[in-house]
């Protein structure tokens, strides 16, 4: 018996469900219909992109100075050789630090719309590198490596990031071994639930040797203010560790952030709170921070000209009666203005 002619479909229905137009797939069109309807319904909710799990606490981290503080003296000479595509080289010198030995580091960055490459080598010959490749706007594959002369100090990390309209997915593998399957594998998912709330989960699978494997999950929550001027996050990290942060933009120039880390393990109970503020002035950035371990620290980054910045960092540990002071210069030059490059670094 000949196949029955396809049922006439009303034009309006075709407009509503575009997948009906693909006649070859008509036997499974109910599935496509359901998917389309679900996709329309989901798009209608207008949920915002939640950001990535890695950047969950980004605002707090850039407001606090823990990631920026240094001691001793340092000089960074950055030379931009091209803006589009971005290509710059950096020479960094650090000396006189209490915690780290003096070092020299050479870095190079190349970035175009699809590819980002970064590499650094220090005076001992240790190389660190990053490579990002953007397939489409939301899908990025990242490769990160640390290579050293000594055995056992090498690290390689493969990562893929996917950001949908209202969710983000990330898979990571650290030191994966193709022969015995050892390594650390991390998968994470963050989904916007309402316009303000996003919830997520991150699972870590560790396999240090072929016989031992261990899995732990952590849960994440992020609440964003309607005007995006405040963000609160919470993250459990398995084994009784909770980290909560709050960040608020008070005005165009002032941001404040608080961070609470709670550790409640059977043999160890402690909590650390850090509060900090950041002022973005016209030619200067000032960060100040106070934490519950008795540390008070501040960092001033003063730009005298657009290409020359002077940094002063200080930290006083009141409980241990210790202090750290750092001074630094950052000189940025472009190949277009060679007279700027001969400027000697100030002590």
């Amino acid at each position: 018996m000949a196949s029955s002619p396809p049922l006439p479909v009303k034009e309006s229905l075709l407009d509503t469900y575009p997948s009906l137009r693909h006649s070859y797939f008509s036997p499974i069109s109910p599935l496509f219909n359901a998917y389309d309807r679900f996709a329309f319904w989901r798009a209608d909710l207008g949920l915002p992109a939640p950001g990535t799990v890695e950047n969950l606490q980004k605002e707090t981290k850039t407001t606090h100075l823990s990631n920026f503080i240094f001691d001793g003296a340092r000089a960074d000479l950055t030379k931009s050789l091209s803006m589009n595509p971005l290509f710059q080289v950096t020479h960094s010198f650090a000396l006189g630090s209490q915690t780290a030995p003096s070092s020299y580091n050479f870095g190079a960055i190349f970035g175009s719309s699809q590819v980002f490459m970064q590499g650094g080598v220090d005076h001992d010959g240790n190389v660190s590198g990053r490579f990002n490749y953007g397939w489409t706007t939301g899908a990025v594959t990242k490769l990160q490596a640390q290579l050293s002369q000594q055995a056992g100090h090498n690290m390689i990390q493969l990562e893929h990031d996917y950001q949908g309209l209202d969710y983000s997915l990330n898979a990571k593998a650290m030191n994966p071994s193709p022969t015995d399957g050892t390594g650390i594998y991390v998968g994470s998912y963050l989904q916007s639930i309402t316009k303000n709330v996003a919830l997520g989960i991150e699972t870590v699978f560790q396999r240090p040797t072929p016989d031992i494997s261990e899995m732990s999950s952590s849960y994440l929550a992020k609440i964003t203010g309607t005007e995006k001027n405040w963000i609160a996050t919470a993250q459990t990290q398995g084994l009784g560790v909770l980290q909560a942060t709050y960040w608020q933009k008070l005005s165009e120039k002032v941001e404040v952030a608080a961070d609470l880390q709670l550790i409640a393990m059977p043999n160890r109970r402690e909590a650390i709170t850090t509060i900090g503020a950041k002022y973005d002035l016209r030619l200067a950035t000032f960060r100040a921070q106070l934490d519950s371990t008795g540390k008070v620290s501040a960092l001033l980054e003063q730009r005298f000209t657009p290409t020359f910045a002077f940094l002063i960092a200080g930290e006083i540990d009141h409980f241990k009666a210790g202090a750290k002071v750092g001074v630094g210069v950052m000189i940025e030059s472009s190949s277009l203005t060679p007279e700027e490059m001969g400027m000697p670094p100030q002590p």
Partner: peptide, 29 residues
């Protein structure tokens, strides 16, 4: 790993040097 260790920085410099606009001189690099 060895190739990456010795070749990564030269690769970035080569790619940056050839794709830059305008092309810089080697000594400035």
């Amino acid at each position: 790993r060895t190739v990456l260790h010795y070749g990564w920085i030269p690769l970035i410099i080569y790619v940056g040097f050839t794709r830059s606009n305008p092309q810089p001189s080697l000594i400035k690099l």
